[in-house]
């Protein structure tokens, strides 16, 4: 459904301006029809809109002039992430929604990899898909409900919610499109800045000499090469206090979770 919007971008047509209205309204309708409601989801129509969006995406991508590996993987990962997000929002069964969130995580992790963040890709998968989702499923199994229930089979103001979401995405995309129209290419600016920035991310902890940088043929530092080392240097150099604060926060959150979840005497009967 919302994938159709990606199709607009693949056409290489930013500033995409008001053309995004079409895919956004497709996605709006699809999500609105797919949201659970007591008289049954309009699965057929909503899925039809989704299929239309994907077909439009494929036509736009494959009809484009240049399709290199990077852009193709970007399309796949972003499509997977957006589809998973659509499923997460619309699936009636909460356990399935949690599994759809895993799909989103995997898609976003792929996008992280494309954006030169391999360490964060691993961390994201381990923390979210590994830890958080398991805890979620645990609580879901604990609070098992049979399916047509008030919690799962009803939506609160589906029309207003969808209008809100469509408005939000429209505003953001229009803002991005305007900005993208102003600047020529971010890639060039990145390559210019990367030369300066990766030369010495943090001086005190790790001296990064020229020999430490792996350069590609263009003489530009390859970003993913030393990602973990650079990230560690940044983290423990520039953000050391924040790291300590995060540790304190984790301890406090653990204590708080234990205190909140504790069963208090005769009051809480499960």
């Amino acid at each position: 459904m919302l994938v159709g919007m990606l199709g607009m971008m693949e056409a290489g047509a930013y500033p995409w301006s008001w053309w995004v209205l079409g895919p956004i309204s497709l996605g709006f309708l699809g999500i609105y029809l797919l949201l659970p409601r007591p008289d049954g989801q309009r699965t057929a129509t909503g899925s039809l809109l989704g299929v239309l969006g994907i077909a439009g995406l494929m036509a736009l991508v494959l009809g484009g002039v240049i399709a290199n590996v990077e852009s193709l993987t970007f399309c796949v990962f972003s499509g997977v992430a957006c589809l998973g997000a659509g499923f997460l929002v619309t699936l009636e069964n909460p356990a399935r929604a949690a599994l759809a969130f895993v799909v989103v995580i995997l898609g976003v992790a792929g996008l992280f990899l494309l954006a030169a963040a391999p360490f964060l890709m691993g961390a994201n998968i381990i923390v979210y898909a590994g830890a958080i989702i398991v805890t979620f499923l645990f609580v879901l199994m604990l609070a098992q409900q049979h399916l047509p229930s008030d919690a799962d089979s009803r939506s609160r103001e589906p029309l207003l919610a969808c209008i809100c979401g469509a408005g939000s995405v429209l505003i953001i995309l229009l803002a991005i499109g305007e900005d993208a129209g102003r600047t020529e290419s971010y890639q060039e600016g990145f390559e210019a800045r990367a030369l300066v920035a990766t030369r010495a991310p943090v001086a005190p902890f790790r001296r990064v000499g020229e020999s430490d940088l792996r350069l590609n043929q263009g003489g530009v530092p390859a970003m993913p090469a030393d990602n973990t080392a650079f990230l560690g240097a940044t983290l423990y150099g520039r953000h050391l206090v924040a790291v300590e604060l995060a540790a304190v926060l984790l301890v406090v959150a653990t204590l708080g979770a234990i205190a909140v979840a504790q069963r208090t005497g005769a009051g809480g009967a499960l």
Binding site: L2, M5, L6, G27, I31, L35, A81, C82, A85, G86, L88, V89, V104, V108, S155, R156, E157, P158, L160, A161, C162, C164, G165, A166, S168, V169, I172, L173, I176
Partner: peptide, 13 residues
């Protein structure tokens, strides 16, 4: 933006 807005819809609806 798409992910954020879908999350917004899910949170409200």
């Amino acid at each position: 933006a798409v992910l954020f807005s879908l999350g917004l819809v899910g949170f409200i609806a």
